[in-house]
Design a protein around this nucleic acid. Structure first.
Lengths: 164, 164
DNA sequence: AGTGTAACTTCCTTGAAGAAAGCCCGAGGG
DNA sequence: CCCTCGGGCTTTCTTCAAGGAAGTTACACT
């Protein structure tokens, strides 16, 4: 491979994970799919990604076992979207820790606000990404909401395999 | 920007973190620096990265606040290497969870083996990346060793600011 | 037939990745 | 004092993906 090394055969698990997850779009797509935004146009619009790149990534992520195609109803019509697999749902701690890291170590742009990670199972905000800092339970997508003050919305996540 | 979007001004903290961490080399360099391999040649050799790309990444990571230059003695000579900042040390949970994710969701190549994350403070292996699954303490670099059976070595991590 | 919309696909230009070769600088050897 | 060595970059060159835009397909509704 020329532009990007192939790390799928590395012994080091960090390198193997980055062989799949090393592209930033992949993690952002997982995040959106866990939020129920699993349709092509929703992803394109929310991420600001070019359609060619999005199409390539979705194909690759299905091959990598991160996504599956699922049907959904668009009026009388049946279309297809994308849902998270177990492997993708297991990335939730990483996404949440990336978010916690950014809030600690990057500058919040003007007009932004703190995104709180709410563990709906206990009702408290968690300051850890993997295990709830308030109640000690392991954090699962279906028990989490992300409170985004700049959108005035608290978005509930959803379990693997489901769309919108 | 043409080849890569600029996400430093995004409200979403996940996007802001990936603006800095979205390149796979960045996380691999942080990993190596936390292992004490902070010299240019050590990084080049261990990562298999091209020298031009390594040089660009190191410069960028200093600007991003992930690394600092530190002196080290090469015989009578004083040379410079790279050490992790607090921001880089705070990426330890993410690195460990990437490793745990890969061991669960990617195929181990023939001849490899399970990399155990050892919490030296309690002596046990942890199956979580952020908080020790055995003793419940928050995991810090200076309390961790990564046991790599394919290298027959247990490598001790080191605190931010130090080299080799 | 014509319009609309979701989901792609193709085409083009730009610029980073990666490989290899060259450069700089201080130490030690002759 | 000149020459070599080796770490740490920098430069050059080719290849190939990112991103933007325009085209295509498929189906439903008017």
């Amino acid at each position: 491979m020329a532009l990007r090394s192939d790390w799928s055969q590395e012994f080091c698990p960090v390198k193997r994970s980055l062989d799949v997850l090393g592209d930033p779009w992949v993690l952002l797509i997982v995040r959106d799919v866990l939020h129920g935004r699993g349709r092509f146009d929703q992803l394109r619009e929310n991420l600001g990604i070019s359609e060619a790149v999005l199409s390539r990534r979705l194909t690759g992520m299905i091959e990598a076992g991160l996504l599956t195609k699922v049907d959904y109803a668009d009026g009388a019509r049946i279309r297809q979207g994308y849902a998270a697999t177990e492997a993708a749902a297991d990335l939730l701690p990483i996404l949440q820790q990336l978010s916690l890291w950014a809030e600690k170590h990057t500058a919040l742009p003007a007009g932004g606000g703190h995104m709180a990670l709410i563990h709906d199972a206990c009702g408290q905000e968690t300051t850890q990404g993997e295990v709830c800092s308030a109640c000690g339970q392991v954090l699962l997508p279906e028990d989490m909401s992300w409170d985004k003050p700049w959108k005035h919305a608290r978005e509930r996540l959803q379990p693997a395999g489901t769309l919108s």
